[in-house]
Amino acid sequence: MNTENKIVTAGIVDDDDIFTYGFKKSAAIKNLFNKVLSFGDGREAIDYLKDPRNSNQLPDVLFVDINMPVMNGWEFIDAFAEIKLKLGKNIPIYIISSSIDLEDIKRGKNNTLIVDYLLKPIDKIYLKDIFDSLQNQTSPRKSNLL
């Protein structure tokens, strides 16, 4: 496989505009992710994923915040589980949150759709690891939270 040419699209689901901006900007600076889609809450993300017109522009990885209005991170993951099989693509999900609530962390651990639970601010080296692993189809190392 020619890894150099693999295009990796990330999706970020977060109501925090500044974080989304920073994520995009820092991805651009570090040359991570060829494209970053952003969604203001879970509902927007689900609507996008479900829309057949987007079926060839689905993200390769999703970074999901927990505390969001309208549809929060947990509700999104439940909704995602329902449409997962119809997407025709395996999209790993990372939780990115400021919540150090043990209940949230435990919940992340018990959900098989969630690859890892990252605390904000995100570690750029770890983000690069995720990007590289998606390019090379390998498993990234994990944070020590889960």
């Binding site: 925090d16 920073g22 820092s26 600076i29 400021s98 609530d101 904000k120 601010p121």
Partner: peptide, 29 residues
């Protein structure tokens, strides 16, 4: 928890932005 969450998220964003500020070399950015 809420206080911690909110202060963390602001503090995290602040750190994030300060890093970006240092990394970016274009004035517009």
């Amino acid at each position: 928890y809420i206080v911690s969450h909110n202060l963390r998220s602001h503090a995290g964003n602040l750190k994030f932005m300060v890093n970006l500020f240092e990394e970016s070399n274009q004035n517009d950015d």
